[in-house]
Every structure is written in C-alpha cells, then in structure tokens.
Design a protein around this nucleic acid. Structure first.
Ligand SMILES: [Mn+2]
Ligand SMILES: [Mn+2]
Ligand SMILES: [Zn+2]
Ligand SMILES: [Zn+2]
Lengths: 141, 141
DNA sequence: TGGAGATTTGGAATGATTCTAAGCCTTGGC
DNA sequence: GCCAAGGCTTAGAATCATTCCAAATCTCCA
C-alpha cells in the first residue's frame, strides 16, 4: 500500500498535514477546482490552513509533476488544478469551467497525434516538446 | 481593396483611429504581444492612446472574432493576442512566450484530428465544440 | 533528540484586468 | 454639411488572483 507520504517522498516533497489534506481533497474531485475552491473545501478539516499555503502547495505539487495546473481558459480568472496527471483531453466552457472528455474519446483523440510530427518539430526548432495539450473549446453562445 | 474600415464594419465595429492603429500593430507582428507590449509599440504613433483602450479594443476584436486571445500558459501573467485567426498550432515556452508552429507542420497536426470525434463528443455532451486548440508545450528545463 | 533548513502563516505588495463616469467621436439620417 | 444618439476613449480607482515577506513552526536526517 502506498501512502501519501510515500508519494510525496518519491516526488521529493516533505510530508505535512496541510499537503496531505490538500492532495486528498484534490484527488477525490473531478471538478478541476481553483485554489479558492480547494481552500473552501478543506476548511472543515483544517480551519487554520491558509490560502497562501494552498498556493504554495499547489505550486510545489505542480513543479514536482504530482498534479497539473490548468491556466484560466478565459484570459482572466483563477487557475484550476487537476490531480489526474494521466494524459487526457479537456473540454472548456465559456464560463471558465473545465471538464474531462470521456476516457475512450480522449484516448482516440490523442492516439491520432503522431510522435513523428513532434520529433520533426523538435529537430527543426531545437526545443524539446514536453507535452501536447489538446483542448476542445465549446461555442460561446 | 479592403480597408481596415471595411473589416471593422463587417465585424460590427466602429472605425476609430485607435482601433486602426492597434489592429495594424497587431497585424504586422508574429510575436503574440501582450496588451502592455502593444501599448508600448504604438506609443510613438499615438502617445495619448491609453492602456484601457488597448484592453477595450482587444476585447472588442476578440468578441468579434477579428483576433484571438491567448491566455497565459503559465497560470499567472498577461494574455497574449494574435491577429492571425487562421487555425494554427502554438508552441509555448517555459517563460510564457508563444511561437507559431511552421505552417506545414501545423497543418499536418490539425489534419490528424478527425471531425468525427468532435461530432461524437457533441452528440454525447450536447455541447457545441467551437474550436480544437492544440498547444505544444516545451520542456521546462 | 537536536538542529538545519523547509514549510506555514497573516498580511502586505504586486500585476493584470476591469470598472467608472465624464468627455469625445463616429455614424446615420436629414 | 449638420445633428443628435449612442458608442468609444480616457485617467484613475477598484478588483481579483497571485506572490512576497518575515517570523513562528514543523520535518526529517544525523
Ligand atoms: Mn477560501
Ligand atoms: Mn505600456
Ligand atoms: Zn482533467
Ligand atoms: Zn499564432
């Protein structure tokens, strides 16, 4: 059985009460919450957990690759966060929410993208591509 | 010959000196500038053009579909803007800049994505997909 | 168990964007 | 060409998300 402690340690992160609380809270939701939303959701468990810690922790998790940060798709407004680091496609709504595309469809989308193109681009630009991000943007009206 | 005035009119926008200046400035660059950067670039032409007008104008252009808004890929930091509304793939760097993927490669990427999948997703979710956004994210280190 | 160094915290600071309300300008009709 | 009506522009204030700060606390390894 792998505990959160194990996961944190493997990612070079210290294990703190706050980090366990936040990771657990992010892990159980499919809603891609904002820092504020997450802060609100853990308030009952740990009333003293500060918003600054939510930001610090989400930064640390993101840097460690434990979670993914999803910048606002609107241009203004808060980032959202996803504990599911498995490659998947997101559906973005005009009000800023983010939904997962069902796994079977997500997979079919991503399978269409050949690695050869990425390789050719890396050759041409000299840059290393870390990830191909696909978003389906829903119509405004 | 289609003037900027014509373009604005077709998009339901009034033609003002400020809008012409800003559209021209955005049209000639490939750098996906921020509102601030654009403001700086037009300072010599029109010293009185305010930053609020830059924001208002970019909002209006975006709403009209004349340009595209590119939210910060980092999560914090300013939006970038693109006068090229032709569907193309972007390469995003760890410092927040955005580059165009060469057109031939861009096209090959987008051609791989079948409309059938989009259609199936629309059927399943009941939402209309306006656009498929593909970003190639360069490795952080 | 001790302590070096990482983490947490409330509050202040920053940065990007939006709001406000007072003129100004564009447009369409005469 | 002249006149509204209403859209546009503007400086500055306000808002919102995020980052910074510095002091107190906690974690983990020796
Ligand atoms: Mn909160
Ligand atoms: Mn400026
Ligand atoms: Zn997701
Ligand atoms: Zn572009």
């Amino acid at each position: 059985m792998t505990t959160y402690r194990d996961i944190f340690t493997r990612h070079g992160l210290r294990c703190t009460r706050q980090r366990e609380t936040l990771y657990a809270a992010l892990k159980v939701t499919k809603s891609h919450p904002t820092a504020e939303e997450l802060h609100d959701r853990v308030r009952d468990q740990d009333a003293g957990l500060s918003l600054a810690t939510v930001y610090n922790t989400l930064d640390a998790f993101t840097a460690a690759g434990l979670i993914r940060r999803l910048p606002s798709t609107l241009g203004s407004g808060p980032c959202r966060y996803d504990a599911d680091t498995h490659e998947h496609v997101h559906l973005t709504t005009p009000d800023g929410r983010i939904m997962d595309v069902p796994d079977d469809l997500s997979e079919r989308f991503l399978d269409q993208l050949s690695d050869e193109l990425v390789a050719e681009l890396e050759r041409r630009t000299g840059m290393r591509i870390g990830r191909v991000s696909v978003q389906l943007v829903t119509e405004s009206r």
